[in-house]
C-alpha cells in the first residue's frame, strides 16, 4: 500500500513536470491554432540559460528562472517574427513545417561547439534536495516546488486569459483575426505577446526541470516536448486546465505501467491510452464537443 502511494507520488512528479511544458504548448495553440514544435527547444534553451545563470553568473534559483524567462520571451518573439509571421496567411501546413524547421535549427545550432556544445552537462542545482518522510512516503522539497509552480502558473494564466483586457484581446484574436482587427485590436502585437508568454513558460519549465533531472544537453527538449504535446492533446488542446489534467494522467500511466506491468512497455501503453481517448473523444477530455469552426 505504501509502495503504491510512493509510486503515485513518483507519477505526480513526472506529471507536473510534463505540465510545466504542456501549459505553454496549449496556450499558444489555443490563441493562434499553431502547434509550435519549437516549444520543446525553447524549453531546452531555458534550461541552459538557467544553468548558466545559477552556476556562472551567481543568481539564485528564482533569479535564474526570471532571467531565463525574459531571454526566452525575447527569443519567442524573434521566432514568431522570423518564422511564423510571414506565413500567417499561408496554408496552415506551411507554418507547421516552418515550426519543425525552427525546432531542428535550434537543436543543431545549440549543439555547435561555440554555442552550448553537443555534450551532456551535469548540473548542480542551487537548491539542495531535502527528503521528508510522511508516514513512510518519501517526499522532497523539489517535488513541492514543482507542484507549487505549476499551480501558480495555472492560476496566473487562467486569470490573464479570462480576467484581463489583454486576455480578452487574445481570445478575440483566437476567435477571428480579421474581426479582431476591425475592433481595433493590434493582432500582431497580441500574437507576439502570446509567443513571449508561451516561451517564458517553457523557460521556467526548463529551469525547474533541471532541479528534478540534473542533466542538460541540446536534444533534451525533444522527448519531454513530445510527451507534453501528447498530454495537451489528451486534456484537450487549447484548454489550459486540460494541459495539467492530461499531464497528470500521462505521468500516472507511465509510472504505474513501469512499476506494475513492465518497464519495457511504458511509452507504448501511455500512447495507447492517448489513441483510445482520441477515438472516443476526439477533442480531448476537457475539449468542447462538436465540429471545429472552419
Amino acid at each position: 500500500m505504501e509502495r503504491l502511494l510512493e509510486q503515485i507520488i513518483n507519477g505526480l512528479q513526472l506529471g507536473f513536470v510534463y505540465a510545466l511544458i504542456a501549459l505553454g504548448y496549449t496556450m499558444v495553440y489555443g490563441i493562434i491554432k499553431l502547434i509550435n514544435f519549437a516549444h520543446g527547444d525553447v524549453f531546452m534553451i531555458g534550461a541552459f540559460i538557467g544553468y548558466f545563470a545559477y552556476t556562472f553568473w551567481g543568481f539564485s534559483l528564482w533569479g535564474a528562472v526570471l532571467i531565463a524567462m525574459i531571454l526566452c520571451a525575447v527569443l519567442g518573439v524573434l521566432i514568431e517574427r522570423i518564422a511564423y509571421r510571414p506565413l500567417r496567411y499561408a496554408p496552415r501546413i506551411a507554418a507547421l513545417i516552418s515550426a519543425l524547421g525552427v525546432s531542428l535549427f535550434l537543436e543543431y545550432f545549440c549543439s555547435l561547439k561555440f554555442v552550448f556544445g553537443p555534450n551532456f552537462r551535469v548540473v548542480q542545482p542551487p537548491v539542495k534536495q531535502i527528503h521528508w518522510n510522511l508516514g513512510g512516503i518519501p517526499i522532497t522539497n523539489i517535488q513541492i516546488i514543482i507542484v507549487a509552480v505549476v499551480i501558480l502558473l495555472l492560476l496566473v494564466l487562467q486569470y490573464l486569459v479570462y480576467r484581463t483586457k489583454i486576455g480578452t484581446a487574445m481570445r478575440a484574436v483566437s476567435f477571428d483575426h480579421d474581426a479582431a482587427r476591425l475592433m481595433g485590436i493590434n493582432v500582431d502585437f497580441i500574437i507576439a505577446f502570446t509567443f513571449a508568454l508561451g516561451s517564458a513558460l517553457a523557460a521556467a519549465g526548463g529551469v525547474l526541470y533541471t532541479l528534478a533531472y540534473p542533466q542538460i544537453h541540446p536534444f533534451m527538449g525533444i522527448m519531454p516536448g513530445l510527451k507534453a504535446f501528447t498530454a495537451a492533446v489528451l486534456g484537450g488542446i487549447g484548454i489550459i486546465p486540460g494541459a495539467v489534467l492530461g499531464s497528470l494522467i500521462m505521468g500516472q500511466v507511465e509510472t504505474l505501467t513501469a512499476a506494475y506491468l513492465t518497464s519495457q512497455m511504458r511509452d507504448a501503453i501511455a500512447f495507447l491510452i492517448l489513441i483510445i481517448v482520441l477515438l472516443v473523444r476526439p477533442s480531448g477530455i476537457l475539449g468542447r464537443g462538436g465540429p471545429e469552426k472552419v
Partner: peptide, 20 residues
C-alpha cells in the same frame, strides 16, 4: 531486471521497485 529507452529521464518507478 528492468529496461528503459534512450530518451527516458525519469526512472523513479523502477527504482522504487528496486529499492524495495
Amino acid at each position: 531486471s528492468e529496461a528503459y529507452s534512450k530518451d527516458d529521464q525519469d526512472f523513479s518507478a523502477v527504482l522504487t521497485n528496486i529499492a524495495q
